[in-house]
Design a protein around this nucleic acid. Structure first.
Length: 552
RNA sequence: GUCCCUGUAGCUCAGCUGGAUAGAGCGGCUGCCUUCUAAGCAGCGGGUCGCAGGUUCGAAUCCUGCCAGGGACGCCA
């Protein structure tokens, strides 16, 4: 990429300056290249001379001038300027920019790909909620974040596997099964109480009714333990498939669904506990088994096996991550969690390190809470308490594209309000339509050209000389840099801003530059530009999991 | 009490691995449809970047303290 070329050029110039004694031979600071906000400062800029001035003890302007003298001409760069207090500004050649339109047209949907991962294997695990009820909006946020990030990592040259981890063991599932059995009995006229730790949402009643309509009262004739287990199995299956459906509606899919239960059945859980014990990380106290994380710098120790002999969620998670790193050998693992799991981060990293795995290979993304409002009023999201707006209701109301865009446009670090009253209205002037509209407009132009039988494969891109055209080309060329930024920061929200920016440049071009006109040569050149723009817009939308409509 | 996230324009938020006059969308106000989609374009107005110190040639960005909002501190997940 051009950015790397510029870094090389500057580094080489600095080394040369050192060799000729123009710069003291101290270690060089890292060369950074920025995209200046002000177009007068060129396409790329570097504050390298300013950083160099500190160690060299020289005037940054003088350093900049020396460096610029040592940079050889290249096919891409028109001019290199020195600006106070010590910036070096690079401006690209118009001719080179124009040629990139042909490059984009030849790369098609591959344009934007940049090989940073070199095929290394990265697992992205997200959503992963217990099958104890339908997804709510907060889960939707993680789902969209995870699926988008996976798309971008793939574009960034990684071999990505998306996984849903599925807690089908543990006390929460037991509470769910008991709740279901209670509702089942109640629906059949049996006077029983819900368990106090149960799930009180109405969906549990619906679920019980659904099972009754399909399977009748046959579970009543079983022993209580059997009934809870058998009915529970049916119920959990149904909940899982409804979760799957909700995610499909959001265009979120997974390569693997991983069962917690499997860790116990294949002995991996026991193996991991043995490993920890051998490493001296386990300790018996207060009738339970503890992971001694205080000796690894943590605030406190954590229970892995409870007094009743059952493993904790934490213990299962350690085994699960052992499986990810040592059984399946992922190079990197990215987990996306809700803010309520924040406290779990450092102890899981400590546990991973205790297993001899470099904890930096495990990256955690915490997305902050989504609070749901109806008008001004807050709506609780707790599954146990009952009043719950499901993700599906929100998707039905707002639509998948607008939903994805909305969730994607805020960084995971900031909490967000989702106001249902405003959802529809907001979806009307949602920026996603602004972006899609640009795509649809282009499709319309291309239809017109096709109708007039204009073939433009031989269009001459060197005719794209006006300011709106060159601005648009510059924006097209940002896509690979966006992919790079997202891969490096794991923050896909940047894509939404890029998409809007690109659409703005197109709409502005559209207003100022007639594409299909009497000027045949110019028409062909502009059809190329417009098609390249369509390609980049579509790619950007697809990376975000959105549709690129040809008509609106 | 400890830890994590957040505090930027009327509202919702970008910008935060330090860089050149702090940006966008929405809302408000002005203009623009005889020609490829006005779900659009052009322009105007709007900011003590929570507060106070510090580091630096340079701080919205880094450090410290405080204030405010949210989250976590369980033999739940």
């Amino acid at each position: 990429m051009l950015k790397e070329t510029l870094i090389d050029l500057l580094t080489q110039a600095a080394i040369q300056a050192q060799q000729s004694g123009k710069l003291p031979s101290a270690t060089l600071p890292t060369v950074t290249i920025e995209r200046p906000q002000n177009p007068e400062h060129g396409d790329y800029a570097s504050s390298f001379p300013l950083k160099l001035a500190r160690s060299a003890g020289a005037n940054p302007i003088e350093i900049a001038r020396e460096l610029v003298k040592l940079i050889p001409p290249t096919p891409e760069i028109e001019s290199i300027a020195v600006a106070p207090p010590g910036f070096i500004n690079f401006t690209l050649k118009n001719g080179w920019l124009m040629q990139q339109v042909d490059v984009i047209l030849s790369e098609r949907e591959k344009f934007g790909n940049i090989d940073l991962g070199h095929g290394s294997r990265v697992q992205v695990e997200f959503v992963s909620i217990n099958p104890t009820g339908p997804l709510h909006v907060g889960n939707g946020r993680g789902a969209i974040l995870g699926s988008t990030l996976s798309n971008v990592l793939t574009a960034g040259g990684y071999n990505v596997e998306k996984e849903y981890y599925f807690n089908d063991a543990g006390s929460q599932m037991e509470a769910l099964r008991r709740s279901l059995f209670a509702r089942y009995q109640q629906c059949l006229g049996v006077d029983v109480e819900m368990p106090s730790e149960g799930y009180f949402g109405n969906y549990m009643v619906d679920l019980a009714r659904e099972i009754i309509s399909e399977e009748g009262d046959r579970f009543l004739s079983l022993s209580e333990a059997e009934a809870i287990s058998e009915l529970g199995k049916v119920g959990v299956e149904k909940i899982i498939s409804s979760i799957r459906e909700d995610l499909e509606l959001l265009r979120v899919d997974f390569d693997a669904w991983f069962s917690e239960q499997s860790l116990y059945e294949n002995g991996q859980f026991d193996r991991v506990m043995a490993l920890l014990r051998e490493g001296g990380h386990l300790m018996e106290k207060e009738n339970a088994t503890w992971f001694v994380s205080t000796s690894l710098g943590e605030d406190k120790d954590n229970v892995v096996v409870r007094g009743d002999g059952l493993p904790t969620y934490f213990a299962a998670d350690i085994a699960y991550h052992y499986n990810k790193f040592l059984e399946r050998n992922f190079d990197r693992v990215i987990d996306i969690w809700g803010a309520d799991h924040q406290g779990h981060v450092s102890r899981l990293k400590a546990a991973v390190a205790a297993l001899g795995i470099d904890p930096d290979r495990l990256e955690l993304i915490i997305n902050q809470m989504v609070t749901l409002r109806r008008g001004g009023e807050m709506v609780r999201l707790s599954k146990r308490s009952g009043d719950l707006i499901t993700l599906r209701e929100v998707i039905d109301e707002v639509g998948t594209d607008a939903c994805r865009f909305f969730f994607l446009s805020r960084s995971a670090n900031s909490q967000m309000d989702f106001d249902l009253e405003l959802a529809k209205q907001e979806s009307q002037d949602n920026p996603v339509y602004y972006v899609q509209y640009a795509h649809a407009r282009i499709a319309s132009i291309l239809r017109l050209a096709e109708g007039r039988k204009i073939s433009y494969a031989d269009g001459d891109v060197s005719l794209l000389t006006t300011e709106p055209e060159l601005t648009l080309i510059r924006k097209l060329l940002l896509l690979p840099e966006m992919v790079e930024v997202v891969v490096q920061t794991l923050e896909p929200h940047h894509l939404t801003y890029y998409a809007q920016d690109l659409a703005t440049s197109f709409h502005s071009f559209y207003k100022l530059c007639r594409v299909v006109s009497d000027d045949q040569a110019l028409t062909k050149a502009r059809l190329k530009l417009v098609e390249a723009t369509k390609t980049v817009l579509a790619r950007t939308l697809h990376l975000m999991g959105m549709t690129a409509p040809d008509r609106m």
